[in-house]
């Protein structure tokens, strides 16, 4: 029952609008570029999901697979950005998006650190006397 619910939720949430930041744009062979996706969660439930993007060339050959886990807030659009390297030959690229609710990203490591250290200073700025001790 729980699985069915999740699948249903996944179907609803898979209302994904893929905004190709570089749609219509050309990138050089082997060039690293960013791929931006906006995922709209139309449901009234926020979920942690794996947002998977698969790239195919003109011949339908898979040329890239990108995946990031993200928190998709209820009734909200969440932006996800990937870094992708273009293939070493000229081709059109077609993207397929898939949202896997509560899914994981195989072969993608969840970082055990946080890049965003700046956001950690709110508590220090609240005026605790500890923050006054510059040097003693």
């Amino acid at each position: 029952m729980r699985t069915t619910k999740l699948i249903l939720l996944a179907m609803i949430i898979a209302f994904v609008s893929v905004t190709m930041a570089h749609a219509g744009m050309q990138v050089q062979k082997n060039q690293a570029t960013t791929v931006n996706v906006d995922v709209k969660n139309n449901t009234d439930r926020s979920v942690l999901a794996a947002v998977k993007m698969t790239a195919f060339d003109n011949a339908g050959v898979k040329i890239g697979q990108l995946c990031k886990q993200a928190w998709l807030g209820e009734d909200r659009t969440t932006a996800v950005e990937y870094v992708w390297t273009a293939p070493g030959y000229a081709t059109g690229v077609y993207w397929q998006a898939k949202v896997d609710v509560r899914g994981e990203c195989p072969y993608v490591e969840v970082p055990n650190y946080d890049f965003n250290n700046y956001s950690d200073s709110d508590s220090d700025s609240d005026g605790g006397d500890d923050s006054d001790a510059d040097h003693h």
């Binding site: 969440t78 965003n116 956001s119």
Partner: peptide, 30 residues
């Protein structure tokens, strides 16, 4: 923080930072 989360969606710091921002904005749901 939205831009930061797009790059690193599993940043707890960015989510918590957004909590502070939305509380200031008055958007309690977000």
């Amino acid at each position: 923080e939205i831009d930061s989360l797009a790059k690193d969606p599993l940043s707890v710091a960015s989510h918590l930072s957004l909590v502070n921002t939305y509380e200031m904005i008055g958007d309690k749901e977000s």
